[in-house]
Amino acid sequence: MHIVHESLQQMVSFDLNTGPVNSVYFHEEDRQFYIGTYGGYVHVISTEHLKEIGRSKAHDCAVKALKVEGDLIITAAVEGTICLLDKKSLSLKKAEYIGATELLNDVFIDSKRDRIAIVSRDKNVRLFDLHTGRILGQHNEHQYSIKSVTVTDSGYIVSGDYWGYIVVWNPELDVNTGPIRIAQNGISAIRQLGNDVYASSYDGGIYHVREDGTHTEVLRLFEQFPKEVISH
């Protein structure tokens, strides 16, 4: 793990020694990096002190994704398990989220409604109660493995798959928009900003997605060749 400190004009390196790094999340409020590794660990790196300030063995296999919200860390592992950790103590909080039948790819905490959304290779988007683990809803509109998920401020769940399709789901009305192909290759990551969503793709584009499913390309980092990946 390497952090480039611009003001000091230096790079600080950390040997975490728990396997390859699989997920990195920066939490702006506490200015800390949260890192998930193949060894099943969550590491916490302070940018103020430029050192590791904590670690926890969350899973017995690779941490595929993690998010931080409020006092909670949520992690998703390759074998389909999800862990909820206390951010300060890094201790495991009791909650079981049962449903995914294949490798988990992403997770998102909707703290406004005390919910979590998960996506996996089984092509399902699932919504759980954060504290009890009870499943609140799901859909299987995607035809391909789902890579990323996020939740807008108003509660719409937007997911993107490995073939460039997105689905916008209103879980309150159980209404889906999509799948809509917005990119010529897979969706690599999705982030929300208020009620707007931005999706990056392996095709080199960044796309703005709205809650009604309309979308526009807002940035191109490189050109893909060939131009389009053909699905069968």
Rank of each mutant, 00 (worst) to 15 (best):
T152C: 14
V158D: 07
F128A: 03
K112L: 15
S120D: 11
D122M: 10
L173P: 01
K112N: 14
N185W: 14
I157L: 07
L173C: 13
N170A: 06
D129Q: 03
Q143S: 11
N170W: 00
D114P: 00
V175N: 03
I116C: 01
R134Y: 05
A189P: 08
K123R: 14
T177F: 01
G133S: 01
L136I: 01
H131T: 12
R121W: 14
I135E: 15
A189W: 08
S111V: 09
G186V: 02
D161K: 11
R191E: 15
R126K: 06
P179V: 07
A189D: 13
A189T: 12
V149A: 09
I135F: 02
Y165R: 00
I182S: 04
G155R: 01
Y156L: 09
S159Y: 11
T150V: 11
G186H: 02
H139E: 03
K123I: 12
I182P: 08
K123H: 10
S111Q: 09
L173S: 07
S120Q: 02
V158L: 09
N170T: 04
N170D: 15
S154C: 11
S188E: 12
K112E: 14
D153C: 10
S148T: 05
A189M: 13
R134G: 04
R115H: 07
H142C: 12
D174E: 14
D153A: 12
R115K: 14
G160I: 03
P179H: 07
V151M: 07
E172Y: 06
Q143F: 09
W169M: 03
P171R: 02
D114I: 09
I190F: 09
Y165C: 12
R134A: 12
I135M: 15
G155T: 07
D153V: 13
V168T: 06
G178C: 04
A183G: 07
S120R: 11
G137Y: 04
I190T: 08
K112Q: 13
T132P: 02
Q184D: 15
F108T: 10
Y165L: 09
V168I: 14
F108E: 10
Y165W: 09
I157P: 08
R121G: 13
F108M: 11
L130I: 01
D161N: 13
W169D: 00
R121S: 15
N170K: 02
G155M: 01
G160H: 11
N176H: 03
G164V: 06
Q184M: 10
R121E: 12
S159A: 15
N140G: 15
V107I: 15
D153Q: 08
L127C: 02
S120V: 09
W169G: 06
K147L: 14
V107W: 00
V168M: 11
I182A: 11
Y156S: 04
T177I: 14
F128G: 01
N185T: 07
